[in-house]
Nucleic acid binder design. Structure first.
Length: 275
DNA sequence: GACCAGGTATTGC
DNA sequence: GCAATACATGGT
């Protein structure tokens, strides 16, 4: 590796890349045993790690400015967002302080959609395994052990039975349905990206296996509709215990970030919900 | 061997 | 409309 790009750490890789919004980043040691986060987005491979107040990225300034800057939502002021959300309630402040280095990534819409189709009634380790196999089997190879996310066109050319090696269960046919709609143009992801969130909700839910929750996740993580507030089993528990009576509208335009703080906090504090 | 996992589609009242 | 139930698979 040549000398990595070194920037003031505006986010924490462990918190941002492993808080449940993305499933294809993993931590692995280099030759000297130091741990790096490694992953692929939009067909580009990146390694990065945090050292104190610095973020080290194994890419050039051009690659950073040309792609990763946008992916990491770099120029948004998350300190300000966190201050505002923390002011709303002590419980939300507690969740935000638990992982202040979380950012909402700007992931590829198609990958986010598929990821959360796979996520339904499923657990995180298994979701990661299914997506890993999906990319290894049908994504373009990028580097040793890493592939791009398969295009809608490639998946549209398959029959649901072809996806058997994924062990995705009944979700395989949902992926194929989404791919066929996206490939045919019947589902226009670009148009969803530039339209109001209600249009996206209605369009995405035409896909088999996409209901309100999966659509909300795709819109937040893939289309960066930051007011979206996915309510899964963890969030229902979290809201009941931490913010009873609250709804998404109470958090304003950054409801999605509030949701991510609460989701991550709840997942790592399961004792809060045991009785 | 139940029970659960970042839900949804289907069915029945 | 809203409450059950099935759904594939693997981890606990």
């Amino acid at each position: 590796m040549s000398r990595p790009l070194s920037l003031p750490a505006r986010f924490d890789p462990a918190q941002t890349l492993d808080c449940g919004q993305a499933f294809r980043w993993r931590e692995a040691p280099d030759e000297t045993g130091r741990l790096w986060w490694e992953g692929v987005a939009a067909g580009r491979f990146l390694r990065l790690r945090r050292e104190g107040d610095l973020l080290l990225l194994d890419c050039s300034q051009q690659e950073f400015d040309g792609f990763w800057r946008q992916y990491f939502d770099w120029d948004e002021d998350y300190e300000e967002k966190r201050r505002f959300l923390s002011s709303l309630s002590p419980a939300l402040k507690e969740a935000a302080d638990f992982a202040p280095g979380i950012r909402i990534l700007r992931q590829d819409p198609w990958e986010a959609l598929c990821s959360f189709i796979v996520s339904q009634n499923n657990n995180v380790p298994r979701i990661k395994g299914i997506l890993q196999r999906l990319c290894a089997l049908w994504g373009a190879p990028v580097t040793e052990g890493f592939s791009a996310f398969p295009t809608p066109e490639v998946l549209a050319s398959l029959a649901p039975g072809d996806l058997a090696p994924l062990n995705a269960g009944y979700r395989a046919k949902y992926l194929v349905d989404a791919a066929r709609r996206a490939a045919s143009g019947e589902l226009d992801l670009q148009k969803i990206a530039r339209s109001p969130v209600e249009f996206g909700r209605s369009e995405l839910q035409k896909i088999q296996g996409v209901g309100p929750k999966v659509a909300e996740c795709a819109l937040l993580y893939g289309f960066h509709k930051t007011e979206c507030f996915p309510m899964d089993v963890w969030m229902k528990r979290a809201m009941a215990v931490l913010l009873p009576g609250w709804g998404p509208e109470r958090f304003g335009e950054n409801a999605g970030l509030a949701q991510q703080y609460l989701f991550h906090y709840s997942r790592l504090h399961p004792e809060l919900f045991r009785l």
